[in-house]
């Protein structure tokens, strides 16, 4: 119930923003009969209608995760964001060890196993991607590579 209603309302706002943004798209005098605005208008209107249906006739609610699980998922999300930001400056191996070790710990809650999984994945995947598949990856931080 609540989930669908909230999502519907959010999407109505998004659709409104989308429609407003579409109305500011510049057309050039070379344009065709339809122009670059009409199709986005149709899409925005469709989202608006569907969102309205979701608000008026919501499905029964699903099990949302409890606070502890939200924290866990949030931590996993944070780990992935940090991984995305550090893989370039710090090279592949170190961030991969940390991120995969952390995810492994979140699933199994066994620190020793997670540490081994992280270390193994960091090095193993590097060898797989760099040597076997030949992708252009930096293994170590830039400042160590010279």
């Amino acid at each position: 119930m609540k989930g669908d209603r909230i999502f519907g309302l959010v999407m109505m706002v998004v659709a409104l923003g989308y429609l407003l943004s579409a109305s500011t798209v510049e057309t050039s005098f070379l344009s065709d009969p339809v122009g670059p605005r009409v199709f986005p208008y149709i899409i925005g209107a469709l989202v608006m209608i569907c969102a309205l249906v979701m608000v008026l006739r919501p499905d029964p609610d699903v099990d949302w995760p409890g606070p502890a699980m939200v924290m866990t998922l949030g931590a996993a999300l944070l780990a992935l964001v940090l991984y995305a930001l550090t893989i370039k400056p710090l090279g592949f191996i170190l961030p991969t060890m940390l991120a995969s070790g952390f995810l492994s710990w979140q699933i199994s809650r066994r620190p020793a196993q997670a540490a081994i999984a992280g270390a193994g994945l960091g090095i193993g995947l590097y060898i797989l991607f760099k040597t076997v598949l030949g992708l252009g990856l930096h293994g170590l931080p830039r400042f160590l590579m010279g």
Partner: peptide, 29 residues
Amino acid sequence: AILLPGVTMIAFVGIYSLTGSSFDMLMMI
């Protein structure tokens, strides 16, 4: 606990080696 982190890292490496940009990885997240 070994498989899932491995799959995740493969997803990141794929996009990273394709686009080379952190922006795309953040968008993927």
